[in-house]
Measured scan of single mutants.
Amino acid sequence: MIINNLKLIREKKKISQSELAALLESSRQTINGIEKNKYNPSLQLALKIAYYLNTPLEDIFQWQ
Rank of each mutant, 00 (worst) to 15 (best):
N32C: 11
L23M: 14
P56R: 10
Y52I: 15
G33Q: 15
L53A: 01
Y39T: 10
K14E: 09
N4Q: 03
A46M: 10
L47V: 11
W63I: 04
E25F: 10
N5V: 06
K14H: 11
N40S: 15
N32V: 13
E11V: 11
F61S: 00
Q29M: 11
Q44P: 10
N40Y: 13
S26N: 07
Y51I: 07
L6M: 10
K48Y: 05
L6A: 00
Q62C: 09
S42I: 05
Q62V: 14
L47Q: 12
N54Y: 06
L53Y: 01
N37E: 06
L8I: 14
Y39G: 04
K12V: 08
L20K: 00
I15Y: 08
L57H: 01
P41W: 05
E19H: 12
I34Y: 02
N37K: 08
N5W: 09
I34D: 01
Q64C: 11
P41C: 04
E58L: 09
L57A: 03
I9M: 07
N40I: 15
K7T: 06
L53I: 03
A21V: 04
W63S: 02
A50M: 03
N40F: 14
E19K: 14
S42R: 05
K38Q: 14
S26Q: 12
E25G: 15
L43F: 13
A22W: 10
T30D: 05
Y52P: 00
M1V: 09
K7W: 05
S16P: 05
L24N: 00
A46Y: 04
N54L: 07
F61W: 05
N54A: 12
E58M: 09
I31E: 01
Q29A: 14
T55D: 01
G33V: 07
K48C: 09
L43H: 10
K12S: 14
T30Q: 09
I3K: 13
L8W: 08
F61P: 00
L6W: 00
T55N: 02
A50P: 00
A46P: 01
P41T: 07
E19T: 12
T30S: 06
I60Q: 02
E11G: 06
S26A: 13
L53N: 00
Q44I: 11
N37C: 12
Q64D: 14
S27W: 05
I49W: 01
L45W: 03
R10S: 03
S42Q: 05
K14M: 11
M1L: 15
S26K: 10
A46H: 03
S42V: 04
K7N: 05
R10G: 03
I49H: 00
E19N: 10
S27D: 15
K12G: 11
L47F: 08
S18Q: 13
F61N: 00
Q29C: 13
Q44N: 11
Y52D: 00
I31P: 01
N4W: 06
N4F: 08
P56F: 06
E58Q: 12
I60R: 01
S26C: 15
P41M: 05
Q17L: 12
K36H: 13
L43M: 13
N37S: 10
L24D: 00
G33S: 15
N54E: 14
S18H: 11
I9G: 01
E58W: 11
E35C: 05
E58S: 13
P56C: 07
N37V: 01
L45N: 01
I49R: 00
A50C: 06
A50I: 05
L8C: 15
I9V: 11
A22T: 12
L47S: 09
S27H: 08
E19Q: 14
L43P: 09
A46I: 05
K13Y: 10
L47I: 12
S42T: 12
I3V: 14
Q17E: 04
N54W: 06
P41I: 09
L45V: 05
Y52V: 15
P41D: 02
N40L: 14
A22V: 11
P56G: 05
K12H: 10
A21L: 04
K38H: 13
K48I: 05
K13C: 14
Q44V: 11
Q62G: 09
E58V: 09
I15H: 03
K13F: 11
Q29T: 12
L57P: 02
Y51L: 09
Q64P: 14
L6K: 00
E58Y: 12
K14G: 15
S26T: 15
N4E: 02
L8P: 07
I60L: 12
S27I: 06
L43A: 06
K7I: 07
A46V: 04
I49Y: 00
L53P: 00
E19M: 11
A46W: 04
I31A: 01
L23H: 10
L6R: 01
G33A: 15
L43E: 05
Q29P: 06
I3Y: 08
E19D: 11
E19P: 01
W63G: 02
S18T: 13
L24V: 15
Q29H: 13
N54Q: 14
Q29R: 14
K13L: 13
I34P: 02
D59C: 14
L53D: 00
G33T: 07
A21K: 02
L24H: 01
K14I: 04
M1C: 13
E25N: 15
I49G: 00
K14S: 10
Q62Y: 07
S27M: 04
I34V: 04
N40A: 15
S27N: 13
E58N: 12
N4K: 00
S42Y: 05
L47E: 11
L43C: 15
M1R: 07
E11Q: 12
L53Q: 00
I2A: 08
I3C: 13
G33I: 08
I31F: 02
K14Y: 06
R28W: 15
L53C: 03
A21E: 02
A46Q: 05
A21S: 06
P56S: 07
I49T: 00
T30F: 14
K38T: 13
F61G: 00
E35H: 02
K12A: 14
D59I: 07
L45D: 03
K12R: 13
L45Y: 06
I34Q: 02
Y39L: 14
R28I: 15
Q17D: 03
M1E: 04
T55R: 04
Y52R: 04
N4R: 02
S16V: 03
T30W: 11
P56M: 07
Y39M: 12
K13H: 11
I49D: 00
L47H: 09
Y39V: 14
E11K: 11
L20D: 00
E35I: 05
Q29K: 14
G33E: 15
L8N: 13
Q44M: 11
K13I: 08
L53T: 02
I9W: 08
D59T: 08
T55F: 06
S42K: 05
Y51F: 13
S26R: 12
N32S: 14
P41R: 03
I31N: 01
S27L: 05
Q17G: 03
E19R: 14
I3F: 10
P56Y: 06
A21P: 00
L20N: 03
Y52S: 06
K13R: 12
